[in-house]
Design a protein around this nucleic acid. Structure first.
Lengths: 140, 140
DNA sequence: CTGTATCCCTGAGGATACTG
DNA sequence: CAGTATCCTCAGGGATACAG
């Protein structure tokens, strides 16, 4: 498929096709999805491995995120009927294709986070882009 | 800078460097940032143009998003001291570099949203990855 | 036109306890 | 081990009114 950029000229803001952005945001914009996908990028993992590999994630969120990803066909869930239950999660090809795009974003972050941090620090001093600081006494 | 992938081998989940993912998510994972950036991708726009081009955004959110992007050096704000005030927002080079990565994600969405939609529909019928449906009478 | 200031509500998501 | 079921908090963000 053609690039979104090709679909519409360079000097026209996307009319309502911001839906693409919305769509990708709804899918990966939540707190854990990208993390789970990137963690599974290297190798299939079981539930407990995922929880251990993703510091701070709760059972509730891990389960929910995995379900959503499975629904969308980004990963597969395989349960082995063993004596201590074992369930493995693995990215599908579709999931890996998302991972590529995600890595591009990660690369961007890696390449520019210093620059951004210093910009932010500079704005701090200048007052640029800062939320209006409380001046004077509060209203009440 | 080298790719994140190059930094660590292919068969090792990122130890704690999920921070890259977190970082990019914290910056663009909110509801409007990507939309504003992509809207400014084509050309500089003024406040009212942005609001018109991004259906559903409130003044509050537009202002806040613009401030954050300005703080991080992703766009510039230029106020013209005219009789009806005019303020133009324009992406910086840094902002445009982000846009490239964002477009990659949009391309991914454009290329795969059909596949994902049908996967989701299929799961719907199969019951795969679905939240447990209420069975029987509620607890109370 | 370009924002600020408030109020308020929803829902993402954390903590905890329980189950097959 | 691999989840479910509940409860509850808190902050993102919408609506509205006001200001330079």
């Amino acid at each position: 498929m053609a690039s979104v950029r090709q679909l519409r000229g360079p000097c026209q803001a996307w009319p309502e096709d911001s839906s693409f952005i919305r769509e990708v945001l709804d899918r990966i914009g939540d707190k854990w999805t990208m993390l789970v996908v990137s963690t599974l990028g290297a190798e299939p993992l079981r539930y407990s491995d995922l929880q251990a590999s993703i510091p701070g994630i709760s059972q509730r969120m891990l389960t929910q995120t995995l379900k959503h990803l499975e629904r969308d066909g980004l990963l597969t869930r395989t349960a082995y009927a063993e004596v201590p239950p074992r369930v493995e999660y693995e990215l599908t090809d579709l999931g890996r294709s998302l991972l590529d795009a995600v890595m591009a974003m990660a690369d961007w972050a890696a390449a520019h986070h210093n620059e951004i941090a210093s910009n932010r620090a500079a704005s701090q001093e200048t007052g640029v882009g800062r939320e209006r600081a409380r001046t004077g006494a509060p209203t009440r």
